[in-house]
Simulated scan of single mutants.
Amino acid sequence: MTAALPSHLENLASLLPDYSVPTYSTTPASVFKSFLRSQKNLVSAFLSTKFAQHLTDSVEYYTALRDEHFSNSLGTFIDSALSVEKRSIVLDRVLVVLDSTPTLLTDPSDIKQAAISHFQSIVSPPLTRYSSIISFPARWQRAYTPLANVSASLYDPVLAPISLQEWSTVISSMPNNKASGPSKISYEMIKHLSGEALDFSLLLANTCLSRGDIPADWREAVVYPIPKPHDFDAQLKNT
């Protein structure tokens, strides 16, 4: 240990400003211990000063960062203020059961198909399918049977073509800052439609209404798995 002391003191000199390696003697032992104690106190004081400075710098940095988030990103500010941990799921692997054998999927196309199958079947279909009101249980027959004192013509306007005024009102009432989906067409974009573009969108809506159908692409959706409190473990059921 004594033999390595000169190199340690040289390292100390490289860290501490205005420090030069002092002369010392290893004898008597009491004097040498006093010298070592003085160097230890010097290092401790230096580290305490550096730690205090680091703490001050960190407080100032994160205070400024929180102020910036408050001005530019309220969501980030709230997460930071509440110490909310940002958790996400990366679908780069999925564990499924194939022929009673657990299988880890890593191919992107296999993962995509597994995710589609999972989320399409996550809600079980009804155990019994009914073809008409007559086949309903008595309780639901009473609920869904048309009322005799209400004229059926009351519902005729339901399938009437949408007017331009109605269409414009609906478009203007749509909320902003919503996910656009696979089409990448946001509500904000639709709100800027005018002239022929607005007329064409109305024609498209009325065509869907009259045919009782929508384009196949509209049935596609983007699914964002949300992590549960426990780990994902590559299992879609944990989302």
Rank of each mutant, 00 (worst) to 15 (best):
Leu95Arg: 10
Gln141Ile: 10
Thr63Ala: 14
Lys184Gln: 13
Asn149Glu: 14
Ile214Phe: 09
Val90Lys: 07
Trp167Ser: 12
Thr49Met: 09
Arg66Tyr: 14
Pro182Arg: 07
Ser80Ala: 15
Gly181Arg: 03
Pro157Tyr: 05
Pro125Ser: 08
Asn238Cys: 08
Ala29Gly: 06
Ser73Arg: 12
Val94Asp: 01
His192Val: 07
Gln141Glu: 12
Ser132Thr: 10
Phe232Tyr: 14
Thr76Gly: 08
Leu55His: 15
Glu10Ala: 14
Asp67Ser: 13
Tyr224Leu: 11
Phe200Glu: 12
His192Thr: 15
Leu202Trp: 06
Asn238Met: 04
Ala216Trp: 00
Leu236Trp: 04
Ala4Asp: 10
Ala216Leu: 10
Asp57Gln: 14
Pro215Cys: 06
Val59Gly: 00
Asp57Val: 11
Ala205Lys: 03
Asn72Val: 08
Asn149Pro: 04
Leu47Gly: 01
Pro229Gln: 00
Cys208Ile: 00
Ala197Asn: 14
Pro17Arg: 12
Asn149Lys: 03
Leu159Asn: 13
Ser100Gly: 09
Leu159Glu: 08
Pro6Tyr: 02
Phe136Ile: 04
Glu188Thr: 11
Tyr61Gln: 13
Met1Tyr: 08
Ala179Phe: 00
Leu198Ile: 02
Gln120Asn: 13
Ile122Met: 09
Ile133Met: 07
Gln235His: 11
Ala29Glu: 13
Ser132Phe: 05
Pro22Lys: 08
Pro102Phe: 01
Gln53Trp: 05
Glu220Val: 03
Ala234Glu: 04
Thr106Lys: 03
Val21Arg: 03
Leu159Trp: 00
Val222Thr: 14
Pro17Tyr: 00
Phe35Lys: 07
Ser38Phe: 03
Met1Trp: 06
Asp110Ile: 00
Thr169Asp: 13
Leu193Thr: 12
Ala52Leu: 12
Thr103Met: 03
Gln165Gly: 07
Val90Leu: 13
Asp231Val: 11
Ile89Gln: 04
Ser34Tyr: 00
Asn176Ala: 10
Ser186Lys: 06
Leu105Asp: 00
Tyr130Glu: 06
His118Ala: 04
Asn72Leu: 12
Ile134Asp: 15
Ile134Lys: 14
Ala148Cys: 05
Lys184Cys: 09
